[in-house]
Structure formats: structure tokens, C-alpha cells
């Protein structure tokens, strides 16, 4: 699939009309993610009830890939439990960053469209930003994540 097809399939739709976009007043955890190299900035909020993700929303701005990925993320993890969300998270990250591209992963559903981003290494960060925020939120750590590795 070329990039244009990738955009056409789903990304344009979700980036122009992001789902679950807006503040979540009764959030239990909020994580800010930013990608300083290009200015993508999103904020992902979860309402956790025990292990259950009751609600999830995001705000922010970024490129089409970043926004579409965040939009699809919210659709996928809403009403799931933490373990299910973690499975999706691992699947998504592996699809984009594992040294060997994994076999297709049916559980990811629509998200599989992003496997094409693998071939554009500069854009992997855009696609994974919201997922990195989710990862931190699932550990119930409010705060922020960045695509840049901090100096230790």
C-alpha cells in the first residue's frame, strides 16, 4: 500500500473527524504526549473503574497520522479492561516497531492499516504517540510522555 492509499483508507476520515475528541471532565488519569520534533501534542484521558476503561477521550493537535491513530485508539479501548487494552497496545507497537514485521494480527482490526507506516520510519513516532500515552495511563500514572528519549 502506498502512502496515499493509507491516508485515503481511514486516516483522512479520522483525522478530519476525530472520534472521542474533547475533554473528559471525570477522567481518573490524564497523560500528555508530545513529539517535539514535529510539534504533535495530544492529551489522552481515561476514566478507569477498577480494571475497566469506562471512557476515553483525547484533545490536542498533530499530523493526520497522529490524530487518526489517537482517534482509532479511543474506539478500540473504550469499555475494554486493562488486560485487553494492554494486548492491543503490545500488538500495535509490535506491528510498527518490532524488528521483524509480525504476521497480521486480526485482533487489531482497523488498526492494521497502520502497518504501512512501518515503511516510513520518520512517521512511526506520529502513529505511536497516543499509544505511548495509553501505556502510561494504564499504569495509572498521570504525567507526560515524549517521543524523545530523555537523557538518563
Amino acid at each position: 500500500m502506498n502512502l496515499e492509499e493509507l491516508y485515503q483508507e481511514v486516516i483522512l476520515d479520522h483525522s478530519k473527524r476525530p472520534r472521542n475528541f474533547g475533554p473528559l471532565p471525570d477522567a481518573t488519569v490524564t497523560v500528555r504526549g508530545d513529539n517535539p520534533s514535529c510539534g504533535d501534542e495530544i492529551e489522552l484521558s481515561l476514566k478507569l473503574n477498577g480494571d475497566q476503561i469506562e471512557d476515553v477521550k483525547f484533545t490536542g493537535q498533530g499530523c493526520a497520522i497522529c490524530m487518526a491513530s489517537a482517534s482509532l485508539l479511543t474506539l478500540k479501548v473504550k469499555k475494554k479492561d486493562k488486560a485487553q487494552a494492554e494486548t492491543l497496545l503490545t500488538g500495535f507497537k509490535d506491528m510498527l516497531t518490532a524488528p521483524e514485521a509480525p504476521e497480521s494480527n486480526e485482533a487489531l482490526g482497523d488498526l492494521q492499516i497502520f502497518s504501512a507506516v512501518r515503511r516510513f520510519p520518520q512517521r512511526v513516532k506520529c502513529a505511536t504517540l497516543s499509544w505511548r500515552a495509553l501505556e502510561q495511563a494504564l499504569e495509572a500514572h498521570a504525567g507526560s510522555v515524549t517521543t524523545e528519549e530523555p537523557a538518563s
Partner: peptide
């Protein structure tokens, strides 16, 4: 209408 990253990726195509 388009973020710089999207512009640059599409231009590269």
C-alpha cells in the same frame, strides 16, 4: 488543511 509532516510525506511520494 494539512500538517507539515503529512505535506512532506506526500511530497516525498
Amino acid at each position: 488543511s494539512a500538517h507539515a509532516h503529512d505535506v512532506v510525506s506526500m511530497a516525498d511520494q
